[in-house]
């Protein structure tokens, strides 16, 4: 039987298969890279409805985290404050600023300001702010230097490996409770050493079993 294609066609088919394979592998690797939690989530910095600057309020004016997020050490949620909290100051400070129009409207109409959520865990994970903040895990450990951010950006991947890394070795992230909201805290000796002492002293034992977080 006569050949339809010359024998040399085999070579092209082989080369073609290799090229297609490389492209497919490359696409898969690329897909994996961009959807990897540390790449997909870190750096997320959506535009908020009101241009609130943590850098100005916390970094320059020195407000404490707990002034607005006053439930962080009382409940699982570190709640975004009611619009009323903004108005505590802004009835007198810059009461006419156009950048605050949204806040004033919300205060008058009662409609909430639709802040965009940045740090979002999966629904099957139970994270409790109170449990972390009250044993001395600082805000900065998970949220980064918020006091230097004009627009809040997610700094950590917040995936399970990242959580477990700290649960297995919490010492570097444990500090005295009164320093929790001091994001620029620089101890005069090794923070891990201080953390280790506090762990011993308070008997801190972060759970590593499944039901610690997946309840």
């Amino acid at each position: 039987m006569a050949l339809i294609f010359p024998k040399s066609t085999d070579k092209f088919v082989r080369i073609g298969a290799v090229i297609v394979g490389i492209i497919a592998l490359g696409a898969a690797a690329m897909g994996l890279y961009v959807t990897w939690p540390s790449n997909l989530k870190t750096g997320y910095s959506p535009v908020q409805p009101v241009p609130y600057s943590h850098k100005l309020h916390v970094g320059e004016l020195g407000m404490d985290c707990y002034y607005c997020h006053y439930t962080a050490n009382k409940a699982g949620y570190a709640a975004v404050p009611a619009t009323e909290v903004c108005m505590n100051c802004h009835v007198r400070v810059k009461p006419q600023s156009p950048r605050l129009q949204r806040i004033r409207d919300a205060y008058q109409t009662g409609d909430p300001v639709p802040w965009v959520r940045i740090h979002q865990l999966a629904d099957f994970v139970f994270f409790n702010h109170q449990a972390h903040v009250t044993v001395g895990v600082s805000c900065v450990s998970c949220h980064g230097r918020i006091d230097q951010m004009v627009e809040v950006k997610q700094m950590q991947p917040l995936n399970m490996k990242w959580c477990l890394d700290c649960h297995r070795n919490p010492a570097p992230n444990i500090r005295p409770v009164e320093q929790v909201t001091n994001l620029a805290w620089q101890p005069d000796r090794d923070p891990a050493e201080i953390g280790h002492e506090l762990i011993q002293q308070k008997g801190i034992n972060p759970p590593q079993h499944c039901s610690g977080c997946h309840r």
Partner: peptide
């Protein structure tokens, strides 16, 4: 990416702690 909003009360509720 799903965009989720946080909608706090415009006026606070006394003694209210979320959750």
């Amino acid at each position: 990416r799903p965009v989720e909003h946080i909608l706090p009360n415009a006026r606070g509720i006394e003694d209210y702690i979320p959750g």
